[in-house]
Design a protein around this nucleic acid. Structure first.
Lengths: 202, 202
DNA sequence: CCTGTTCCATACCGATCGGTATATAGTATG
DNA sequence: CATACTATATACCGATCGGTATGGAACAGG
């Protein structure tokens, strides 16, 4: 339950929770929620099983904390992307951002969110719902940005913001599938270029 | 190992292998390879555990046979789609075909191939490789069709067949992710329209 | 009928799953 | 030092995993 000690009492822990959480994120990212076993997690985190449960609660709670870390550290490009001056700029930044993240040499390929939602989980559909909820809020932000773009005349007639945001999300999710399947960086770069080449206007 | 008896001898089996395999496909489709347990499979197939192993070999062999069935029964629209007269027609048939399949009320949502490749499998990366191999051959067929389209002047200058086939595959995989996440038929129909609206030419 | 063969039913195998009980080690306060 | 408290280490829990051994049931050919 991880209560914060006002003044430290008892034996101090020998590991850095933030560092351990980062290691857990890597495992979840590679294996998915169900594919990541507690044994693999503890080994990667460099801690023992009881330490994991004492510090992070249980597997599900650990995953949620890993999701938080993923959003704040790996999906931060989304926030800056939405600040681009044009709809096309938003799309370009989003596509290039996810490209950069999913092609990192030091990290797993693919998107944790996609990985966590496609497998038709058995016990853990609450995990799926959690990820879907976060995705929905992200989509809502993108939609709001495209509604603004529409008002600014930044999207052509006959193309609605809802359609555009859904389309762009879909392409990025498809990119994640490609990356999970081992697509090369060159392939994904070409994919970004193709998508941008089809983008209306400019 | 399922050796075909020249003349039937011994006790005849009490179930229809084709029907059982169809039931197994539904389970794999819903749960993914690792998520589908033998117990869930046998229950859905209406047979006992030893019957499954006697008739289909083991879980991996069963999955491959389910994959075969999936390709021949569920992905048959790909073949006819490639026969469309124009590149745009190919895209439209592919998109509408995958839309129809992934929105069926009687079957799981999403694409079995996508489901089987995104989760970073532990033991079963040979399963992943198998699916990736089949996907690659499908992509190759699409590419060949777009190379032909290019020769016929059916793709605009500056857009290569490789880029186009990869792009279209990506959109369809993204659609599968959306469907897995519970996207409505209306949402996916709008997505198809948007994609076609952005398609070059016409 | 008897024998051979194949299928079904039940129970079981070792391994691994997520999670925990227990005992010991290390720190702060008194 | 003694006490209170917390972290670590080890061993363990019941449940489930994929896969199988065993024994009886149902058919064929003789």
């Amino acid at each position: 339950m991880e209560q914060v000690a006002t003044t430290s009492r008892g034996r101090p822990r020998e590991f850095d929770p933030a560092q351990a959480l980062a290691a857990a994120l890597q495992v979840f990212w590679r294996r998915g929620y169900e594919g990541a076993s507690i044994s693999e997690l503890t080994e990667a985190m460099g801690i023992t099983r009881p330490s994991l449960y004492a510090c992070f609660g249980n597997k599900e709670a650990l995953f949620r904390q890993a999701l938080d870390l993923y959003e704040t550290e790996k999906l931060c490009y989304v926030k800056t992307a939405l600040e681009a001056p044009t709809a096309r700029g938003v799309a370009e930044r989003l596509l290039r951002g996810s490209l950069a993240m999913q092609c990192s040499d030091s990290e797993p390929q693919g998107c944790l969110g996609v990985i966590s939602t496609v497998a038709g989980v058995t016990e853990a559909d609450c995990i799926r719902d959690e990820v879907l909820k976060r995705r929905a809020s992200s989509n809502a932000a993108l939609l709001a940005r495209f509604v603004q773009a529409k008002e600014e005349g930044d999207l052509p007639d006959g193309i609605e913001p809802e359609a555009m945001s859904c389309y762009l999300s879909t392409v990025m999710q498809g990119m994640a599938v490609q990356a999970s399947g081992g697509a090369s960086r060159e392939t994904l770069e070409r994919l970004v270029q193709t998508t941008l080449a089809m983008w209306p206007g400019r």
